[in-house]
């Protein structure tokens, strides 16, 4: 029971809850992440492991992959991005509606990973802005969930554009 200033009303007595609009929207958004899995390589297996029942990303409200970028909130870039694929990724990102976030899944997407050659993009942040980097080759599901929770924190705490 919080202290109530003189002349004020103790709302909690009446079964109310108060919050800020910003926080409320953030709370709603962070638990309804529709993801677009952009899966190109081996990390995809680990993505599946994370998404399925054993680790169950649905607990975090992120269990609903949309295969249209227009309906997605979070772009999961999972696996190596080659130079030839880069324009496609950029286009997918551009097609997503605001607000949108990007998760780089695996070292290939973070930095190019162990690829140091003519064909691979050295980190997708050359192409699109990234919110959360999840390193690992491939990352363990626990690591992915950690990254997902970081993303939720970020969504909760940012200024909500409406």
């Amino acid at each position: 029971m919080g202290a109530v200033a003189e002349g004020g009303v103790n709302l909690e007595k009446f079964g109310f809850m108060t919050t800020k609009l910003n926080d409320a929207i953030g709370w709603a958004r962070k638990f309804s992440i529709f993801q677009y899995p952009f899966v190109t390589a081996c990390c995809g297996m680990e993505y599946m492991a994370t998404a399925c029942a054993h680790y169950d990303v649905d607990r975090f409200g992120a269990g609903f992959p949309r295969f249209s970028p227009r309906q997605a909130d979070v772009l999961f870039v999972v696996g190596t991005i080659s130079q030839k694929m880069a324009p496609v990724l950029k286009k997918i990102y551009d097609q997503m509606c605001e607000p949108k976030w990007v998760v780089a899944f695996g070292v290939c997407t973070c930095t190019g990973g162990f690829y140091d050659n003519y064909a691979t993009v050295m980190g997708i942040d050359h192409i699109i802005p990234v919110d959360v980097y999840i390193p690992g080759c491939p990352p363990r599901p626990e690591n992915v969930l950690d990254g997902l929770m970081k993303l939720q924190d970020k969504i909760q705490n940012q200024k909500q554009e409406v």
Partner: peptide, 13 residues
Amino acid sequence: DYPYNKRQPLIGP
């Protein structure tokens, strides 16, 4: 004789 790590990307630096 092609340098394996030579970059000539479509996108990026």
